[in-house]
Computed example of a mutant assay.
Amino acid sequence: MGFFSMICCVKDLERKKQGEHNSKVRIFTLKELELATNNFNNGNKLGGGEFSSVYWGQLSNGSQIAVRRWEAGRNRSNTTDREFALEIEIMARAHHENLLSLRGFCAQGQERLIVYDYMINHSLESHLFPGRQQQSATCHLDWTRRMSIAIGAAEAIALFYSISYLHNHATAHIIHRDIKANNVLLDVNFKARVADFRSAKFLPDGATHVVTGLKGSVGYVAPEYAMQGKASKCCDVYSFGILLLELVSGKRTADCMIEIWAVRLACERKFDEIADRGLNGNYVEEEMKRVVLVGVACASIEPEKRPTMIEVVEMLKGDKAKLLVLENLICSLWFQNRFDFEKQSFDSS
């Protein structure tokens, strides 16, 4: 679907939804967003990447927003328009309390802007791995909040897998391709909001994977995707497993082979050594064990051994039968393939 066709579809969607479910999706004018962000002042800048920046803003009614602004003019590529249109389509269709909400967008002249709800507690990453000036931030992530974040994010990912999209005249589903701690935002109550669908890819119905260029972040990319370019739902499950292990341990995957470290300790029943020291022992042992086992299973090097996101949700919520099978399988695989795991860990060091 072409860019302008996509925008027309979104406009139609907006019109249909007005008065229906009290939809908040709307089309903003450039002037509104310039006023809200103080003309995209650097002081309002929340972050950004190579091709876009995110700004804090406040609308005339007092509500706070986050605005992603893509590069305008000659520097903007066709990729920008594709990312912009794809993210609008995905977010306009996907509604869940643990998905970041789309407030609206602006496609005026050369400007491409998407407006989201502003998340006052920023990203999960900012609390798990605070900078030197934020050393007290981890105290906000007590165990109750971490467990809520794990289950909420899992439910959101499972939901957007269930949504069908029309792509190239055929039904397809989406894969995120960049699930990581920085793309899980936290609202005022520390409720998780999965965000950033710029790297999302359509997966045709019936297809197990698509071969595509590499997207994602160091430490979160599944082995089969990194080596063979095969992107699938299993790749997202792998990334989510790494995220769970970071959430429970407070360790960065980029700093260690977190899945190898965690599976060894889990099979030795040393779950207390995995727990983030910032928790000071204040966690529910059974729940912590549950998160570790699910995280290790999701981060299996064998895609076919990974659970589905629906199974992940069930196990995080305490499905004892599935967890028992999972624990036995993980330890069996560890002892069968211990040499290969340890060699992989040694080679990466």
Rank of each mutant, 00 (worst) to 15 (best):
P223H: 02
S101G: 10
A156F: 13
V184Y: 00
Y225G: 03
S53M: 05
Q134P: 07
S164W: 05
N22K: 09
K251S: 10
V188E: 15
N168T: 14
S300K: 01
K251G: 09
V115P: 06
S60W: 01
Q64H: 14
R26Q: 14
C139R: 04
H176A: 10
W56H: 12
R68V: 06
C234W: 00
I258N: 03
C298E: 09
V292T: 03
A137P: 03
R277W: 01
H127E: 10
E273Q: 14
E342V: 14
T208E: 11
K11M: 15
L33W: 08
I163T: 15
R264K: 15
I157Y: 04
C9I: 01
K305T: 13
G131Q: 04
S345H: 13
P130E: 04
G48N: 08
K320M: 15
Q135G: 09
G278N: 14
V221K: 00
N189V: 08
L279E: 05
I88L: 15
N44P: 00
K320S: 14
Q344N: 10
T308W: 07
H167Q: 10
C234K: 05
A153S: 15
E286C: 08
Q133H: 03
I157Q: 08
M91P: 10
H122R: 00
E302L: 08
P223D: 06
R290C: 13
D142T: 11
A137F: 13
V194M: 05
H95F: 07
Q18T: 03
L214E: 11
G62V: 12
I157F: 07
N98K: 12
E50L: 04
G213F: 07
M288C: 07
Q135P: 07
S162Y: 05
A107F: 00
A299M: 11
V194D: 03
N182H: 05
C256G: 07
Y220R: 08
H140R: 02
W56V: 02
K24N: 07
